[in-house]
Amino acid sequence: MPELNLKLPAHVALLGYGGLVPFVGLVILSGVDPARAAVWGRALVGYGAVILSFVGALHWGFAMTAAGIGLAQRRRAFVWSVVPALLAWPATLMTTPAAALLLVLGFALHFAEDRRLAGVAALPSWYLPLRWRLTVVASVCLLAYVWRGAGQG
């Protein structure tokens, strides 16, 4: 599998970093349009919940296809793959500040699980650095919204 360890493919970078645009854009909108900050905050939480669910699904795919993992590790990846969605869904029902904090916790837990899986599975060498950068930016945006006190809705 040497092709897995090449540098980050351009199309993956574009898709990954492009997925940060709504995080950054919505937190900026909440600052420049304070009259609708609560609306932008709900949109930020909704998008964060979708993305957290998406990254959980990555582990379902890894569980089905990753080389180098045993039955117990494969089972753990399948089980873990649904946990982010189970964290994201209640976030959509909470107040915005609490929801944003729950999503940040979910992203942090997921990155920890990514690191654990990368230790036993043959994942691309670019995967963890990319996931780290995406996790940091998404989390900083969610925390910035909460910190600014905009999310009272």
Score class of each variant (00 low, 15 high):
S53Q: 04
A88G: 15
N5Y: 13
A108S: 06
L123W: 08
L52Y: 04
G41C: 04
L134V: 05
N5P: 00
L128M: 15
L109D: 13
L123P: 06
L128T: 09
A99E: 05
N5T: 13
V32G: 08
L130V: 05
G19W: 11
L71I: 13
Y127K: 05
A144G: 06
V39L: 15
Q152V: 14
V79S: 06
A144Q: 01
W147Y: 08
V137S: 04
V27P: 09
A43N: 04
A37N: 08
K7G: 14
L86T: 10
L29F: 11
A43T: 00
A112S: 09
H59E: 06
G153T: 06
A100I: 03
Y127F: 15
L15R: 14
Y145I: 06
G56C: 05
A57R: 03
V79K: 06
V45Q: 05
L14H: 06
P9I: 13
A63G: 09
L87A: 06
A98D: 14
A138R: 11
A150E: 12
T95N: 15
H11Y: 13
D114H: 09
S125V: 02
G25R: 00
H110K: 05
S125H: 12
A99D: 03
A121S: 01
F23W: 12
Y47N: 01
V137C: 05
G153R: 09
G106Q: 08
A121V: 03
T135I: 05
W132C: 02
N5Q: 14
V136R: 06
D114R: 09
L4F: 12
L109E: 09
V79T: 14
L4E: 02
D114T: 14
A121H: 02
C141P: 09
V50Q: 01
L123M: 09
G46Y: 03
I28P: 04
V12R: 12
G19V: 10
E113N: 12
G61D: 00
R42Q: 15
V137G: 00
F107L: 04
A85R: 07
G119A: 10
G46F: 01
A43I: 01
Y145T: 09
P90R: 04
A98R: 12
G56K: 10
A63L: 07
G149K: 12
P97S: 12
G18S: 02
G153Q: 09
G153W: 07
V55Q: 12
P129D: 10
F23P: 11
A85N: 08
P34S: 04
G149F: 11
D114W: 07
L71A: 15
V39M: 14
V32P: 08
G106F: 03
M94P: 10
V79M: 13
T96R: 12
Y17P: 11
V82G: 05
P22A: 15
L26W: 00
L105N: 07
L87Q: 00
L143A: 11
G106M: 02
V146Q: 08
V120N: 02
L142R: 10
R42A: 15
L86N: 01
A121G: 01
L128K: 03
P97R: 04
G56Q: 07
Y17D: 07
R76K: 10
L134G: 05
A67R: 15
L8H: 07
S81G: 04
